[in-house]
Design a protein around this nucleic acid. Structure first.
Lengths: 226, 226
DNA sequence: ACAGTTATGCCACTGAGTGGCATAAGCGCG
DNA sequence: CGCGCTTATGCCACTCAGTGGCATAACTGT
């Protein structure tokens, strides 16, 4: 039973009746959460490359071997908050009922629904720390980009499984997903650089704004500077 | 003077009168090119992780230290062909004259112009090898994604420097660039999985098709499967 | 030919990530 | 309650990517 658990979010776990899960699972989730929070804290104060995995594992009182059973790599632990959102997105996509509106709008709705699910008040803070770190850590940014890319591929498979498309090799569904991801990143960047401590509804507002800007991005015209 | 240069592309360098460059520069470019081609060959036959940098450097008869003066990392050397295209894209963007058509179309034109510049007949083969490797090597894919992302940021700065926008924080230029990149990747994926040995004009065709699909990606509607 | 610049080679080192195996913690069952 | 069964964890040794310092060799201009 590792130390450092005290501060390290016993608070977040009971989010939705975790009393159901067996003790072993709960412990696993606790270590995972402790690693995420300690990592975000250490990386934020001393920089991503200023903290070794050994130090992180020491701080959480866990062996490096255990770390790698929970995360794929050093970047992974710091990107976990955003990844949680996309996992929820995939989940929502499975159960969402279409209403005749364009696919792009449906995907936006699904993303909003996923955002609604991120209930813990700790999530907003974690995403903020995570994104600010990613802004100054190329390898983290690359890792996040790749994760989004893989997620959109998975989502594409879900779309093809659940919905009907005229042509199986139509590029438009894939492009619609990429557009969603692009707008999401634009919104996230803007949200992250807001002064003070932005809230979840701020993020929703930035998202709406980015989605609204999408159609214009194909028609916008420009002139040379005078 | 490293060995392995014989097969290793004295052919590509004189592409545009490299007689102008000083000897030292030519040698540097030769080593660089030799590293790229040998890397693509070794990675293709034995897999990305099946080849150590030491082996690669041995094959090209170069010290590991020299490798890292030419490339930022192991993934970098294998993604060089695609990166060359984007460097040309940025260059074309600097000199392109707008003609009143939408920004998105202009960017597509600029990308086509960059593609025209990839003259060496070796380029097509290299991109093909590189992309097929990226398809089965997550870390390469992540690296490529990140490079495109950074490039689009640079391009955004160029746009703001050269052209006039109503609002300085307008999201649409950024989104237009992301759309371009998404369509490019769609086209590249399709081109890469063509049977046989696809040509440069095949790639141009796939690009046109992907660009044409962009507008529809926002309006496409879907139904549940019967 | 000489002096200045710059790429290269060599060497030692840190730190990420992996595999194997013993141990202990949670779990189900009699 | 105590017993095996499953599974997470810890420990150890190892490979390999990537870095820094410093001496040397290779080009450059005069």
């Amino acid at each position: 039973m590792p130390l450092g658990y005290d501060r390290a979010m016993t608070a977040e776990l009971p989010s939705t009746g975790s009393g159901r899960l067996p003790l072993r699972e709960r412990k696993k989730l606790r270590t995972r959460q402790a690693l995420i929070d300690t990592a975000l804290e250490l990386f934020t104060t001393r920089g991503f490359s200023g903290v070794t995995l050994d130090e992180l594992c020491d701080a959480v009182d866990v062996s490096k071997r255990t770390f790698f059973r929970n995360f794929a790599g050093k970047e992974d632990v710091a990107m976990a908050p955003t990844q949680d959102l996309w996992v929820a997105f995939l989940d929502e996509l499975e159960i969402h009922e279409p209403d005749g509106r364009p696919l792009a709008e449906m995907l936006q709705q699904v993303l909003f629904a996923a955002l609604e699910r991120m209930t813990g008040e700790g999530w907003v803070r974690r995403v903020l720390l995570s994104r600010r770190l990613a802004g100054e850590t190329p390898s983290m940014d690359a890792h996040g980009l790749h994760f989004c890319h893989r997620t959109s591929r998975t989502a594409l498979a879900t779309l093809h499984r659940r919905f009907h498309f005229a042509a199986p090799d139509d590029l438009r569904p894939q492009l619609a997903l990429d557009l969603l991801v692009s707008a999401f990143h634009c919104a996230l960047d803007r949200w992250t650089s807001r002064p003070g401590t932005p809230t979840r509804s701020d993020l929703a507002a930035d998202l709406r704004e980015a989605f609204a800007a999408l159609p214009g991005s194909l028609t916008l015209t420009v002139d040379l500077r005078a």
